[in-house]
Amino acid sequence: MGAASAVLVILITILFPPAGVAIVAGCGADLCINIALTILGYIPGHIHAFYLEYVYYDRHEQAREGHLAARRAPGVYSDRIQTGGRGYGTVVQPTQPAQPAHY
């Protein structure tokens, strides 16, 4: 995602935090937690959403530079956020069959 899409996600998050989380994390535990926090109070929902977006874009930039985070970010349950969106939805490439032995 480019800078324009990051700004758009931030603007959406300012208006409705769960929508921003759904964009970066998809439907999962992080979204459910954010919905609950937003219901409990608008500010906790924003804090949680911006934290998830920060981790996502930070990991995305690290992966683009070739660095992989060694540790999982605390409080983040989505693998998509943990990896910065890299490898999300990819299919494992098949390995080549072994060559037969010649006697």
Rank of each mutant, 00 (worst) to 15 (best):
R71V: 13
G41N: 13
D30V: 12
M1L: 11
I10R: 12
T83Y: 02
H102K: 14
I33Y: 03
A25D: 11
G89T: 13
Q96V: 00
G85P: 12
G75C: 08
H48S: 07
Y54E: 00
Q93K: 15
F16G: 06
G75F: 05
A29T: 14
P74A: 15
G75A: 04
V7M: 06
T13D: 02
H60N: 09
V21F: 00
E65A: 13
V91N: 14
A70P: 00
I23H: 01
Q96Y: 07
C32L: 10
L8M: 13
S78T: 06
Y57W: 09
Q99V: 15
S78A: 04
Y51L: 05
Q62F: 02
A29Q: 11
A29M: 13
A4W: 12
L37Q: 01
A70H: 08
G41S: 15
V9H: 03
R80T: 08
M1T: 08
V9K: 11
E61W: 10
L52H: 03
A69H: 03
G28K: 11
I43G: 03
L40G: 10
V76W: 00
Q99M: 14
I10V: 13
I43Y: 14
A69E: 03
F50L: 12
T90Q: 06
H46R: 10
V55E: 00
G20V: 04
E61D: 09
P94T: 10
R59S: 03
H46T: 08
T90C: 08
G28T: 10
G41D: 12
G87I: 04
M1N: 12
P18Q: 13
V55F: 05
C27E: 10
P18Y: 01
L37H: 04
T83F: 04
L8C: 12
V9G: 00
T38R: 01
C32D: 03
